[in-house]
Amino acid sequence: MEDLGWWGVVLAVLAGAIRVSTPFLFVSLGELLTEKSGRINLGLEGTLVMGAMSGYAISYLTGSPWLGVLVAGVAGALFGMLHAAICSLPRVNDIAVGIALMLLGTGLAFFLGKAFIQPQAPILPAIDFGWWSDVPQVRAALQINVLFVIGLLLAPFLLWVLTNTRWGLIVRTVGDSADAARAMGYSVDLVRLAATMAGGFLAGIGGSFLSLYYPGSWNEGLSSGQGLMAVALVIFARWHPIRCLGAALLFGGAGALGPALQSVGVSQGYYLFNAAPYVLTLVIMIATCSPTRTLAGAPGELSITK
């Protein structure tokens, strides 16, 4: 194995950006869709953990990791349904319901996932994009999972749906002015239910990536706030799917910094480097938010920016 020195760190961060960003990407696209309909779902952290657990369990029980991904998405959609159903009751606060579902999702996943901590389930395959290189680190870095590619295509697709289709217009109308949508004869609750379920579906898939590809096993410390950071990431991306993609890659790179430094022997401050994504999120939020004006691109009905 060649010694790449500090270039190894750069390479590992870039490779990590691709690998670690996938769950960020899926959760943030899901959250973006939900927020476009005017509701915020803080519970995606719980959905993510639930997706990771159910995907892993199904992959172990059936031997098919892709079935696991699908079931993870369905589990996420069910959580989205629960969120939307409770929030559609009058005088119920969507942020608080999100916090509750964060606790419920995590608890349920830990409860049901107890039996799946030990066994090894079949995990998702990777596509080898690095066949042309002789350097093992480069080859390892270019082992890219199919889900990342799907996420890469999903971002422009979502942008197209939101800007150019009838459905996208309905979702945005509901998100910007519930009264206008009602006047046009659309059911606000129904549209939000669909958007929250679709968002939960994507977040569940993001969770399955954690357990079925990287790190590639199920345990209780699997998610460390990715679902929550994705919510902040959507604000940073100003509710734009393509900027979400860029932000997810940035967060992935920050998340890969700690392990990359450790691999070249920098173990001092390992925990501090692991906190890099949280600090980055906070710094980004401080830089982008403003106390006096509403953020450009924010859906008008969103409680978090009002």
């Binding site: 629960l82 409770i86 608080a96 319901v97 509750a100 608890g107 409860f111 107890k114």
Partner: peptide, 18 residues
């Protein structure tokens, strides 16, 4: 499992908000 308590807390939280 010890997560039983977490499940109970989660259900209680959802019910209270609803």
């Amino acid at each position: 499992p010890d997560a039983t308590i977490l499940v109970l807390q989660g259900i209680a939280f959802v019910m209270i908000l609803a």
